[in-house]
Structures are given as structure tokens and as C-alpha cells.
Write a protein that binds this DNA or RNA. Structure first.
Lengths: 147, 147
DNA sequence: TATATATAAGACTAAAATAGTCATACTTAG
DNA sequence: CTAAGTATGACTATTTTAGTCTTATATATA
């Protein structure tokens, strides 16, 4: 089983493309460059807009762009927005916490792992991914020149 | 969505009960003390046995017990045995890794988070949970004496 | 040996989550 | 006014999850 769902993965791809473009891009163009179906792209972009991660302009020549600098968009933000917060187990869900929580010896250990996971997801930002992308492209070019 | 599924949570409860008992216990008794349906308990115990986490003896007076000391049973072990390894996203699945992996800028970040999650799950053992349980019981008794 | 009490193995079902499509309405540049 | 875009939500198929139940096998003991 995957912690990160398919559409969250798509969301990340779309955000990477948006970040690389650095300007307003239409859903259609995004769907092509990110290799995600147009309809699904449109849907995911709506979610991202609702979460304030991207902004949109309607009408002809409309499109989407990043609402904030890539450094301020963490993995935790995107995952939380698209598929909801990742909880280790039911007891740690904000709503309806386990009744036995106080007496349960497992909760403590879980909460610690949860904290570490949260921190890990918070630590990675879209900027990191974009930098990795650019480094990758650069390396590729160097390799080309090398051969 | 929860990373840890219901039956994995049950498995942990069952293992805690087994650890507390410190001796062979029947599935029926375990199902009662862990508050898990008998049938489901039996099924989960089979999985745990298959993974070598518990041992069983058949027939009348049969039952289950821990196959190893609690210190050697990590959260990662239990989770992996019951619900399969936790992967952050599809690309990181051992089988059928993403075709674009080499060129994908997201994979690197994911792999790092995955590593941290693995480490977190590996770090917690059944012994930790049992100790927490005993500490909890002790504190409760102290409170009782206090009042 | 008969029987009661266990585990072993897997078929089966219902409900929920996931992934994705599509139809329709609204907005705006030209 | 129309072409090119976003906005919204209904709808469906598939997969996963959770859980039950049936049947078979093993063994202690009366």
C-alpha cells in the first residue's frame, strides 16, 4: 500500500511543471507536460486552488500559477491538501480519538513515529524538488558534452 | 487515510497481550483480552505465525506465544508482516519501480522521507510498548494509593 | 478410542476508498 | 458573439479493506 495516493503524485508532478514554467499555464498544457489526463488534471488543480497552493484566472487566456514561492510549499502541505493528512493509525486521527487512548500503551510509540513522519514531510519543499530537477538536467547536459 | 490498517492495529494489540502473558495463550483468550473478534483474531495470528513472529501449538491445550523476545519485534516487522511494507509512493515499490525514476526529481525527496519512516518504524519495538504499559499500570496504582 | 478443545486454511461477502470520466455551467479576451 | 479557458459536481468501475464462516486437522484427556 502507498502512503501517497496516485492523485497526490499527480499533484506533485503538476506543481513541478508549474514551478518550472514560472508563469501562468493552462490546465491543458499542464496535463500534457505532466502526463496526467486532462479531466483529472482539472480536478486536481481545483483541489490545489481550494487549498491556496495555486491561483487561477478564468476565461480565455486563463490558467494556473503557483500561489506562493516553491520554498513555502512543503510535501506535507500538498499531501494534506490533496488526500488529507497522513495519520499513522486511527487513534491519532484528530477527530474521534480512541476511547482507550489514555490507557493504551501503543499510542505513545505511534505518536512519536507520527511526529517524525510529519517533520520529514514538512522538511521537503517544492523548491528542493525543482532544484533536484535542474541539477538533473544540468548533469544530463554535461554528460552529453562529455560524449 | 491511515498508514496502519485496522488488522495491523489488532495484531499489535494481540502481541501486547501475548507479551504481557509471557506464556502460551489460546486465540479465544487473546481475542477477549484484546477486544478483537475471535475469527479475525485467528486469522491475524495465522499471518503472524507465517511471518515467524509467534509460534503455535495445535490441539487441545494449544495456543500461541511469542517466537522471539519483545525487544526483537519491531513495529516495522509487524507492519510488514501483516499489511506488507509501507511505501511512500508507487515509485518506491520494490517491484515495478517507476520507469521514469532516473529522470524524476520527486523520487529523491521521496526516498529520503521513506528512509526516515523506515528508521522510525524500526526503532520502536514490542518491548518499548510493554514497558510503557507496565509504567502506565504502575502509575495507575500509585494514583490509587494516593487517593 | 471417543470427544472436546484447539489450530489451519481459505472461500466468501459487504462496505468503503480510490481512480478516473464526463456533462454542464460559468468567465473572459479578442 | 464565440472560442478558449476554468468551476463544479454527478457518476461509474475497480480495488482494497474488514470481517465472517466453513471445513479440515491435531492433540490432550476421560
Amino acid at each position: 500500500m502507498n502512503v501517497i495516493r496516485q492523485h497526490t503524485d499527480y499533484a506533485l508532478r503538476l506543481l513541478v511543471e508549474l514551478g518550472l514554467a514560472g508563469e501562468k499555464v493552462s490546465a491543458k498544457r499542464l496535463s500534457r507536460s505532466a502526463k496526467v489526463s486532462y479531466y483529472y488534471t482539472a480536478k486536481i488543480l481545483q483541489t490545489l486552488r481550494g487549498a491556496g497552493i495555486v491561483t487561477s484566472t478564468m476565461g480565455k487566456c486563463g490558467g494556473f500559477s503557483l500561489a506562493r514561492p516553491p520554498r513555502e510549499v512543503s510535501l506535507a502541505t500538498v499531501v494534506g491538501a490533496v488526500q488529507g493528512p497522513v495519520r499513522l493509525n486511527q487513534c491519532l486521527m484528530p477527530v474521534r480519538p480512541c476511547q482507550l487512548r489514555d490507557r493504551c500503551p501503543i499510542t505513545g510509540a505511534m505518536a512519536r513515529v507520527q511526529k517524525q513522519l510529519d517533520d520529514s514531510l514538512e522538511a521537503v519543499t517544492l523548491a528542493d524538488i525543482l532544484e533536484a530537477q535542474q541539477a538533473g538536467v544540468k548533469r544530463k547536459h554535461q554528460n552529453r558534452r562529455g560524449t
